[in-house]
Simulated assay, not measured.
Amino acid sequence: MNAISNAAIESAALRSDRFRMEREADWQRLENIVVRMEKGRLRGISDEDLLALPGLYRTVASSLSIARETSLDAATLGYLESLVQRAWFVVYGPRSSLWEWLRGFLGGGWSRAVRGIGFEIGIALLVMVAGAVVGWLLVSHDPEWYFALMGREMAGERVPGASAEALRGTIFGNTEKTGMSIFAAQLFSNNAQVSILAFALGFALGIPSLLLLVHNLAGLGAMGWVYWKAGLLLDFAGWISIHGTTELF
């Protein structure tokens, strides 16, 4: 039994040594590249090594897979697992820290991302303006459209035919009253829901999202008409710019 056991151990060691000798050159080359990159010595890495890096990573990852399947010695497995993990971070891992990424994002990355979708933002803006115009025109021709666009609960005292004093009170009313706070919360909740729905419905070529923007801004246009009839359009625009700008964007 001891002879058989010793023979099995020797066979496994021989197989492991042969496996390592056939592939060790690639392992060492990858390790040298990884060590230099980890230390930030990029200038000392040749173009050939940089071009070979992805292929070497895949080769060593394949060696690790074979080593696991053939149950090679623990030392070889441990070495390959460590090397593959370190190489993965070099090849696919993040190139900067969280602070560096945040600094780049706030220092120009954000604006570049916005400019990158400038065409889409322009379309959304045109659709929103069109929705507000449609709401304004509908209510100006038939005030009953106002309740179809706004809903009586959200409209409150802001209805067609309301007096200028009543409408002014909704903007400049007593600060001790909670009506303005409730309406501001309704605005935030409504626009947050619209934002989430517009994002979720984007899968359908963005068409439902555009229709949603038209409907949402039609209500704003309808309410703008109500305040315009009372001579308070500028006051309403100032009020809505405070409570609605962030949600609209």
Rank of each mutant, 00 (worst) to 15 (best):
79 Y>E: 15
150 M>A: 14
139 V>G: 04
58 R>H: 15
60 V>T: 12
100 E>R: 11
66 I>L: 15
92 Y>K: 10
197 L>S: 06
46 S>T: 13
32 N>V: 09
237 A>V: 10
105 F>R: 10
227 Y>S: 05
145 W>P: 00
214 V>I: 12
180 M>S: 10
213 L>A: 03
185 A>C: 02
196 I>Y: 06
149 L>S: 08
134 V>L: 14
114 V>H: 02
164 A>Y: 10
147 F>S: 12
80 L>N: 05
83 L>F: 03
73 D>F: 00
85 Q>P: 00
177 K>W: 05
140 S>L: 00
208 P>I: 01
84 V>W: 04
23 R>Q: 13
46 S>K: 11
83 L>S: 04
133 V>P: 02
16 S>K: 12
78 G>K: 11
125 L>H: 06
18 R>F: 08
175 T>D: 12
85 Q>R: 14
103 R>W: 11
195 S>Q: 12
147 F>Y: 13
179 G>E: 13
144 E>Q: 14
105 F>H: 13
203 F>P: 00
206 G>C: 01
219 G>Q: 08
15 R>C: 03
64 L>S: 12
80 L>D: 01
164 A>L: 06
168 R>V: 08
214 V>N: 14
225 W>A: 02
170 T>D: 13
120 E>D: 11
160 P>N: 06
231 G>F: 04
232 L>G: 11
170 T>G: 15
216 N>I: 03
144 E>I: 01
246 T>K: 09
231 G>N: 07
89 F>Q: 11
138 L>A: 02
192 A>D: 05
182 I>K: 15
239 W>D: 03
148 A>E: 08
108 G>C: 00
198 A>C: 06
28 Q>F: 04
54 P>Q: 07
245 T>F: 12
205 L>K: 09
193 Q>H: 07
195 S>M: 13
17 D>Y: 11
173 G>R: 09
69 E>P: 00
20 R>W: 02
229 K>P: 00
187 L>R: 11
214 V>A: 04
76 T>V: 05
176 E>P: 03
121 I>N: 00
147 F>W: 12
132 A>P: 00
208 P>S: 11
30 L>C: 05
21 M>N: 08
155 A>G: 01
137 L>F: 01
93 G>D: 02
237 A>F: 03
61 A>S: 15
222 A>H: 01
218 A>C: 10
207 I>F: 07
199 F>G: 06
36 R>K: 14
17 D>T: 10
157 E>T: 06
194 V>E: 04
74 A>L: 05
130 A>F: 07
212 L>W: 03
240 I>Y: 09
29 R>Y: 10
128 M>N: 06
15 R>K: 15
102 L>D: 04
26 D>P: 00
219 G>L: 02
77 L>D: 06
78 G>M: 04
116 G>R: 11
3 A>M: 09
25 A>G: 10
217 L>E: 10
166 A>T: 15
49 D>C: 01
189 S>W: 05
178 T>A: 14
162 A>V: 01
233 L>Q: 13
229 K>Y: 00
203 F>G: 03
